[in-house]
Amino acid sequence: MTARTAILLNALALYALAVVLLMGFVLQVLWRELPCPLCLLQRVAFVALAVGPILNIRFGPRPSHYAMSLLAALAGFGISLRQVMLHILPGDPGYGTAVLDLHYYSWAAIIFAVAIALIALVLLFERQFETMIAAQRPPAFAVAAVWLMIVITAANAAATLLECGFDVCPDNPVRYEMLQGRQ
């Protein structure tokens, strides 16, 4: 795998993360389901997962960038597994609406586990680290992916502030604290 191929794969990873985060927004806005603190932390971990690919696109692929993504994926896996365990007992309805029979946190646990496996797989291809292409301009496809993630992250920050206000988010949020009185 060349460095250029690796950069394209990193851009694809950013688009995949964007889809996952946008799905969270669909559940939140269209289905009016407010994310709980652990749900928000899983979104934070998805955002954290994006920093490594952005560094790979800007500076060229490096093992340390993949290591950052691995750490973020491990944190996200732990957080989502905790929420799976909270709702694992028979008869528990779970938190929020299930999508394709699984709740967001279950999908998150699967996606973080797949991310860990994929990052380990990509690390096996050492040729990507042999050529330094940091000086070259990244393809427009990759630049668009970076900006998409930046915009989605900013939107998540704004939505979380609207939901929780300047206080700690409640375990079962039912309203946007910053919009209280206007809803």
Binding site: L41, R43, V47, I150, A154, A157, T160, C164, C169
Partner: peptide
């Protein structure tokens, strides 16, 4: 609030 700060930090 705490998660909003985390989003802002990762945005930075």
């Amino acid at each position: 609030m705490d998660q909003a700060i985390l989003f802002v930090l990762f945005l930075a």
